[in-house]
Simulated assay, not measured.
Amino acid sequence: CAAVTKKGPHALINRRKMAIGIEGLEGLPKGHDVISVGLAEPYLEARGHTAALEYLAGVTKEKAPSGHRGSSDTMGKNREVFGIVLADMLEKMDPAERQRQVMVIDSDLEGSCGLHHIHKRVPDVFVRSGIMERGNFSAAAGFGMEKGRQGVFGTFSAFLEMCLSEITMARLNGANVLAHFSHAGVDDMADNTCHFGINNMFAANGLASEDDTTRLYFPGDQHQMRAVLERVFHDPGMRFVFSNRSALPDLLDANGDLLHGENYTFEPGRDEIVREGTAGWVVSFGETLYRALDAVEQLRAKGMDVGLINKSTLNVVDEDLMRKVGSSPFVLVAEGLSQTNGLGVHFGSWLLARGLTPKYAHIGTHLDGCGGLWQQMEHQGLDPEGILAAVEKLATPA
């Protein structure tokens, strides 16, 4: 083989076709994805797979639940909003200063992470890179090593774990990185367990002795996403912003107005009271928040005065609200992240460290998910009914 016997670099390209034998799909990159029924049927029919054809014919599309209590019917995709807001901000900068201060590095997922808005509107700071998340994160961190510079990075939350070494080195070197990890949690996750983005808390891996400015943000709707980005874009250190694959409804306050309306200002590290309560508290964030709000509204209608906290800064303790919720009869953390290593295990430890001992429980992703979109949340017990049941179980005297 020439690659072994001759000096110098060599590249080996495997030109193997995808989806061989499937007419209309063979040789196309779309062969890596699910096969449409229209293409599958002729393939199955030609091979006599009548049982499979009958099964496909009997499948009906389910409609995702809508009209959640406490939320409007208006939806927004935070993974798209991330790119739109950054493009809005970057367009206002002087072009020369923008190129000196900002570099946006894509990992072949610009259309999924919202970075395509930056590519289209401010291409002078956009770098179209490939599927090499570790190298791309390091490049963003390297650019952000200088004071006043920001390296921007984007990929799926499922790939966060592979960047942990680079995250550690970037933190130790004081790099400025705004990292967008979309497709967090399990909601609407068509790619099943392998694409679950549930180990996001791993990003907060600094030591207590460090002056660690790492922050993990998980906004609850599109308006809070905008407020978060406008507030933290110029902050030093590493900021991880998480979003879901799914769209989220706009959250409403107790009066039916937008919770994150024109007068809303995001403050890093400060938790937000969505509903006041005296009987106990639910703590949530991201795509689980509006489902928790639905559950809380149902419980309040039944006479249980349950409150709801939006903990959009995941890795910082809000001491005032911690004392408030910790002094109540019970606390339930409901999240789409891993039940093993998500917010719930941290929150329980934070309560105990402060001598606060309410009845406590946490629910999160704990099951494999084979198939489904929005059904993934119901499967994990994170739909409104599942959260409601968890609250009632926790509130029931032993």
Rank of each mutant, 00 (worst) to 15 (best):
H223M: 15
F196S: 01
I118L: 12
W374G: 12
G344Q: 02
L39H: 08
G21F: 11
M304L: 15
N310M: 04
P249Y: 02
G326Q: 09
G280F: 12
K61L: 09
P95T: 13
E166F: 05
S71Q: 06
V186N: 11
F202N: 08
R270S: 14
D108F: 08
E54M: 00
G372F: 07
R226K: 15
G174C: 05
T5E: 12
G21N: 03
D73G: 08
G185F: 02
H366Y: 07
L53F: 01
A390W: 02
A175D: 00
F126S: 09
R149Q: 02
H32G: 03
I309Q: 10
A170V: 04
L86F: 14
V127Q: 01
S36V: 02
G261D: 08
D235Q: 13
V127R: 10
C163P: 02
P65V: 01
I22H: 10
S71Y: 05
M75P: 06
A247F: 05
L160H: 14
L28D: 14
L332T: 00
H32N: 04
P268I: 00
G8V: 05
T213P: 10
A11F: 15
G206V: 07
N136V: 11
F159I: 06
A139L: 02
G372K: 04
E45H: 10
G277I: 03
P42L: 09
G174M: 09
R69N: 07
F330L: 04
M18R: 12
G344F: 01
L56G: 14
F156R: 11
G372M: 05
E133S: 13
G174V: 10
K311F: 13
E41P: 02
Y264F: 15
N255I: 00
V127Y: 03
D383L: 13
V333E: 00
E166M: 05
L109V: 15
G76E: 06
D211W: 07
G31Y: 08
S338Q: 03
H260W: 05
K147V: 13
N176E: 03
N263R: 13
G38N: 11
R171D: 04
T168V: 13
I167C: 15
G342S: 07
E392F: 09
E80S: 13
G135E: 06
Y217E: 10
E267H: 15
D33N: 10
L352T: 15
R270Y: 00
R231F: 02
E385R: 12
E62Y: 03
G67H: 14
G220H: 07
F202Y: 14
L252M: 14
K6T: 13
A395H: 13
V102P: 02
M162P: 05
R149T: 06
F218V: 14
G8Y: 04
N341Y: 03
S246T: 10
G83D: 03
L343S: 04
R15Y: 07
L314G: 07
L258C: 04
A139G: 01
L229D: 02
R79H: 12
K302G: 14
G142T: 07
G185A: 13
C370M: 11
A389P: 08
L160W: 10
M238H: 05
R15S: 11
S284N: 11
S72A: 15
